[in-house]
Simulated assay, not measured.
Amino acid sequence: MKAKFLCYLPYRVVTGLLIIMCLHSPGFSQAGKVGSLAYLKARNGIGGFTLGGVLTGEQEQSLAYLDGEGSKPDADSCITYEYHSEKPIELEGGLTASHICVRTYDHKVVNIYVFFNRDQGYKMLSKFLHWYGTFTAKPNDYQDVYMWESRTVKLLLSFHPDDEQGIAVYTSVPLTNTLNARNAKRLSQLLTSNQ
């Protein structure tokens, strides 16, 4: 009986140690944890819009083409829609937006633009710090511009005293990379055809 117990002990100890190590590794334990960039990646959007996702039928019914441009794509072949409401749009965590714009490529969400009243700026910053942790960049010490950057999602928060509205821009990094590669290829083809 003792010999049998000793044979299984190393296996169980090693298995237990592996499980403990996995649970405490940064990649595993941070997945979706509030107060980290992993939470930004896990949420992957705001206000019911998901980066890289396709707009739902209900979302499409609530959106209109920006500035009445129709379905005319921009230089990146993206189409921008606007969600405008008579009253402020309720977001998660008690945040409100005056309106939201969504930029899509091939029916997938590339950017989510959240516009809010400037006086909500510090409340927005406080929520983002709580949700996503400390910002990864602050381009200018004298302006209220904050950035959170991960491998899959970027977030820019900007609100200035001179502006009526602030903006939070969520960006899909993989879709942006696809657009940049596509544009570089088109430029290269254009240059070689002109030679």
Score class of each variant (00 low, 15 high):
M124I: 12
P73T: 08
G35W: 01
A3M: 10
E69G: 10
K4R: 15
F5R: 15
L23H: 09
Y8N: 11
A42R: 13
M147N: 14
V153A: 04
Y11V: 15
K127T: 14
A31I: 12
Y39P: 12
L6Q: 06
E92D: 08
R103E: 08
A64I: 11
K2H: 13
L51F: 04
H130L: 10
L157N: 03
Y146G: 05
Q59L: 05
T178M: 06
L125P: 03
P139F: 04
Y11L: 15
L190G: 01
P10K: 05
A75H: 10
G32T: 02
P88Y: 03
S98M: 06
L23K: 10
L37V: 01
K4L: 15
L129S: 09
G27T: 10
D141H: 09
L18P: 08
D119A: 07
E149D: 10
P174C: 07
I112Y: 03
T104I: 00
W148E: 02
A38M: 06
Q61A: 15
E82M: 14
N180V: 15
H107M: 09
K2E: 14
Y142M: 14
I20N: 09
S193M: 05
N194P: 02
L155I: 01
H24R: 13
P139W: 00
T56G: 01
D106R: 15
G47M: 03
I167M: 13
Y170R: 03
L63E: 04
A42W: 14
H84E: 08
I167R: 08
D76L: 15
L9V: 12
G27R: 06
S126N: 10
D119H: 09
T176C: 08
Y122C: 03
W148F: 00
E60N: 13
V14N: 05
I20R: 11
Y8S: 11
A181G: 13
K108A: 08
H99Q: 07
S25V: 02
I89W: 06
H107F: 11
G166H: 01
L40E: 00
G121V: 00
G35M: 03
I79K: 04
D162T: 12
Q195L: 12
R182W: 08
E69L: 15
F28E: 13
Q189N: 14
I89Y: 01
T192A: 08
T192Y: 07
L125C: 01
L156F: 09
S77I: 07
D76C: 05
A184I: 06
S188P: 03
N183T: 14
I20T: 13
D119F: 13
P73D: 05
F28L: 13
I89G: 02
F159T: 06
